[in-house]
Write a protein that binds this DNA or RNA. Structure first.
Lengths: 208, 208
DNA sequence: CGGCATCCGTGACGATACTG
DNA sequence: CAGTATCGTCACGGATGCCG
């Protein structure tokens, strides 16, 4: 079960760490920000987590109101885990961590796992406006819902329906995007990125 | 030593958790945001941490560039630990955690430790402008440096020198401040808070 | 006395195997 | 597919000891 080991400090940050400070918990939230996921999918996208720890965390998170367990309607009646609004509110925490962590990211190490939708978190900060953007990296395709107020924040694979903009670039450019001003415009000019679409969002992307 | 257990994921949030995801690490950062502290002071303000874990975390954090160990000039030549700029950049992470954690804070539990300067983190977000504010709670006195770009972000005890504003309130009001609009103005009107000072910062406090 | 290092019991973690 | 069971290992928390 969860932190029966509380810090026992009357401090909101310590209370937050009581709930999400355990190993893997925030990474599970990162996965669920992509929408409802099955146990096996979570396990596949969290290399290194053991089955019992994943099961234990999911129980804790449900008890603490971060996630809900729901049975999918047939066919394919499986269980999925999804974030509650309270759990979704952890997005700023993950963004702050991600922003800080970009300073340590560097090049991928040989031992590093990579998933395309992990680039969604830093990309989200760089996006102004609202709309759906589909992003194609060599590592795979994902999509982000900029400005979404409920439901998934991003997702794996192509966007459901026609996106407001399509982005084709390499992962290095995608990582650089979160950092700088004009990085995308420069990348487009340099040929290492392509923006497709005529929505306001696509236009603003070309100018950023 | 530190996370010899890396998540091994090419993701900036996971990298951040590699560095600061260990138990106690972020709470040590919270303490050091108040300025340089000695080992014994850290141990006193982090009830529950064992001596060896504290020593180990401080070593890890120094190795990872989050903190520096410095010898104080005589008299009283002791070692102090302080944040590097890189470590200070974790402030947004702690603020995001603190903001989220306020939803779980509630009333102090009998087992909870309390330190006055733990209220500085949520208060900082509520402060517009720049300047020094001295805050007096029943639990003690602390001060915050709003808009500080280097050096400590807050501190225990009275402000060094004359603050731009003085605040007298109870901890419940202080906790409520971070949440709402006009909370401080209402508290002043209701008599549960007092603002002293004629600086622009004090004026803006009275109006917020 | 401040600043750790050592020892020890308990619990959390990671890997594998197994079951409904 | 979705976990539970088992087990070895390591991290944590508490106490105590050492050393300047």
């Amino acid at each position: 079960m969860s932190p029966r080991r509380s810090y026992d400090q009357y401090c909101s940050a310590a209370r937050a760490l009581d709930a999400v400070g355990d190993r893997w918990t925030l990474l599970i939230v990162r996965e669920l920000l992509a929408g409802p996921r099955r146990y096996t999918d979570l396990h596949a996208d969290l290399p290194g987590v053991s089955t019992d720890v994943l099961a234990s965390r999911l129980k804790d998170m449900e008890r603490d109101g971060l996630t809900a367990r729901r049975r999918l309607p047939p066919p394919g009646a499986a269980f999925v885990y999804e974030l509650t609004p309270r759990g979704r509110d952890l997005l700023p925490v993950l963004q702050a961590l991600g922003e800080w962590g970009e300073g340590e990211l560097g090049e991928p190490r040989p031992t590093d796992a990579v998933r395309a939708h992990w680039f969604a978190l830093p990309l989200l900060r760089a996006l102004e406006g609202e709309g759906t953007v589909e992003v194609s990296l060599e590592e795979g395709v994902f999509h982000v819902f900029a400005g979404a107020r409920s439901g998934p924040v991003y997702g794996d694979g192509p966007a459901p329906g026609e996106p407001d903009a399509r982005l084709v670039l390499d992962s290095a450019t995608c990582a650089a995007l979160a950092h700088g001003e004009g990085a995308l415009a420069d990348a487009v000019r340099g040929g290492s990125a392509t923006v497709t679409g005529d929505s306001p969002l696509a236009k603003s992307l070309r100018e950023t």
